[in-house]
Write a protein that binds this DNA or RNA. Structure first.
Lengths: 402, 402
DNA sequence: CTTCTTTCATTGACAGCGGAAAATAAGGAG
DNA sequence: CTCCTTATTTTCCGCTGTCAATGAAAGAAG
């Protein structure tokens, strides 16, 4: 058997090198001195770690025309060459797949959606492979290799093993998705929970850069929450974490599919809003968009529903803030399309329910095009790539001995 | 000026050495091989780190009579010599100080309580110094030096700086307690929030040993919560974290001193129970003990109050479990004296409100004599001692340059 | 137009940590 | 006794990151 082509691996043997690269990747172009400061290392260490990364083409040097110091030798900026490697991210939903091709800086180059006929693992894997193939062709057109594939799935996902433990939405149990996808695509694959993937993207490339503790709250079909504590994404002992959607807001509230009453999700998810809108107005509202337009049109009782939803979300966020003291909360998700309808209520409820200085937490919103979910998946692939190997599954990996 | 006596410092220069020592300290006597396994290091590294620790007297070697392997050379156990150094922990409450003298293994050797006449910093510092002096005399009697003092205060405490930012209960603001106490006692001082201190004690010496994520919930005068995530105690960005007491359980519930309605604390704290008990029974209940005896005596409506309290606590714990997925929740606090009155309700409410496999979280109770709060303070001192310097304040430290 | 001063970056020497492998220790089984 | 097995120690070695000294590249001072 011919030995596989020597896949050049990422030249960051040491953890410090990976840390330096990550700093440059997420904190934009920086001078070496600045990198040293932020990474808590000596200038010499940075010089030594940067050289091989420049030689391998992952970093490039820029001259900084502006912002040169008033005195002394001008600094040279170091930044990541996004075009050095590409990544594919795929988000699996119940009825479609979203795929993106990104560069190393996680900028989306191409996005593709394809519908799904069924949601069992096989019915998903085929189209997913096809989707990846299409994106690989795009990458070929750019003449850059694709260095990893990230897949995001809702539910309990074991990233280290690459296994979807249980996804209620897809009705999957113990599906070794990473292995399967590595087999069909030939790429190194990382699989993670969708909200956590989005959180990784925020942590490295979004509003969470440089923070050691923050939360991402997604509002839409469901209400999700990704948490970063001590600089790491929280995964939870039993596959559960960030279930802000099932924080009880009102024990006398509407029944939730989880069996309880008054969960945030039972009040503020798209479904919940549609249901309440039907009951309040008598109109056969079809989806969240229509529900929002009823409210915008001033239909009686419609705005109150959004007020309640905003209140529930604000209380949920306050609960997170009270328990964890994050530096920032990033509200995101498709539901933000109707943000004007409940923004004030979120803020008011948060301010009221936040305890003491937890109210100082910076709560902000960030529009989330649906492609972002797939971008999150790509971000996990980039993360695995930089950490060289961790949590990645590759084709033909030897099975562990019995 | 005579140079100070060379205070022998803890011989764990490297982080690995400190990690090895901590492993032995909290996981009891272990063979070197076992330490290597748990610390993820080579056997050689353990041997090398252990030797100076044995020479300095912090570790001792034991022969293990039982449990020797069926085959091969028998292993030698390594354990911490608790008697090598002593520590003092002081818990500051509004009306008294509790002080304990512990050994290096955080076993309480002596406990002392003294009442406080007033609660302003000066009125506390005097008696605290006196209390420490008494415990130092006890230590002298044992012929072992006291290597550190830990102080635990409720509220927003900045451990790194040793400053009590804001303690509503004591009405303190920006009190540099560590510096003050270091001045009057001559000991290295660590100051931390009381619940976090208790959590450190559980993490190193209690039911949290070996876990990377768990929560400590204290039930009593207040409802508190200490969180460990990714193996570290959560401190929160603005000094707030673990405020499970102000998680809203029932928006229509009784008003809480924080301004909201239906906080866990407004339903399940000692005060809340006493208040509800008076309203329900008409009896002028004086304290939690009397309230509990009413319930035990079967006074009409008394048990229902505990049922509601248990329900609130269970929901609060479920919220923590849903958000963070801890491996374990340790319920503790003076309120546990009446645990039989609400245990079932806590479990029922937790099981109902926990989402999915979060219900698998191991919820257990642990009786907490009041001295434990002071022991927690001692645990923080031990932690600072082992990490040599971090978060400790010593007398005569040079002020930072302007 | 030199010479300073200042800040950025690089280099080379070096200490120390932790790993790998070989050596040693300490029992029990033949 | 000798061999086998497991624990621990020793020795050697590569590697990482720091320190201190040196080079570079401006603008400022004279």
């Amino acid at each position: 058997m011919a030995s596989p082509p020597a896949v050049e691996s990422f030249p960051a043997n040491t953890s410090a090198a990976a840390q330096i690269f990550t700093t440059v990747l997420s904190q934009g172009p920086l001078t070496r001195m600045e990198v040293a400061r932020r990474a808590g290392l000596s200038a010499a260490a940075v010089t030594k770690a940067v050289r091989p990364l420049i030689e391998a083409g992952y970093l490039v040097e820029d001259v900084d025309e502006d912002a040169r110091p008033a005195l002394g030798r001008p600094a040279n900026l170091v930044r990541v060459d996004g075009g050095r490697a590409l990544f594919i991210g795929v988000k699996v939903t119940g009825d479609k797949l979203i795929g993106v091709l990104t560069d190393l800086c996680c900028r989306i180059l191409v996005a593709r959606h394809i519908p799904l006929a069924a949601r069992d693992p096989k019915a998903v894997l085929g189209p997913a492979t096809e989707l990846v193939r299409e994106l690989l062709i795009e990458a070929d057109g750019l003449g850059v290799r694709v260095a990893g594939l990230g897949m995001a799935v809702s539910g309990d996902v074991d990233r280290a093993e690459g296994v979807v433990r249980y996804s209620p939405f897809l009705e999957w149990r113990d599906v070794p998705l990473a292995e399967l996808a590595a087999m069909t695509t030939g790429l190194p694959v990382t699989v993670d929970n969708d909200v956590r993937a989005l959180t990784v993207a925020e942590q490295w490339f979004g509003a969470g850069v440089g923070l050691s503790g923050f939360a991402v709250v997604t509002v839409g079909a469901g209400i999700g929450c990704g948490l970063v504590v001590h600089g790491r994404v929280v995964a939870g002992a039993h596959g559960v974490a960030g279930e802000i959607g099932h924080v009880t807001v009102d024990p006398a509230g509407p029944r939730c599919h989880c069996g309880n009453r008054g969960c945030v999700e039972a009040i503020a998810s798209d479904d919940a809003i549609v249901r309440q809108m039907r009951a309040a107005t008598g109109v056969q509202v079809a989806d969240a968009v229509q529900a929002a337009s009823l409210a915008h049109d001033g239909v009686a009782g419609a705005r109150e529903i959004y007020a309640r939803a905003g209140d529930a979300i604000g209380r949920g966020i306050a609960t997170v803030a009270n328990l964890l003291g994050p530096e920032r909360v990033i509200i995101s998700g498709e539901g933000l399309a109707a943000y004007d309808l409940f923004a004030d209520h979120i803020r008011t409820a948060f301010a009221a329910a936040a305890f003491g200085s937890a109210a100082q937490c910076d709560v902000r919103t960030r529009p989330l095009p649906f492609d972002e979910w797939a971008r999150g998946a790509a971000a996990t692939a980039i993360q695995s790539f930089i950490r060289s190997d961790a949590n990645q599954h590759t084709r033909g990996r030897a099975p562990s001995p019995p």
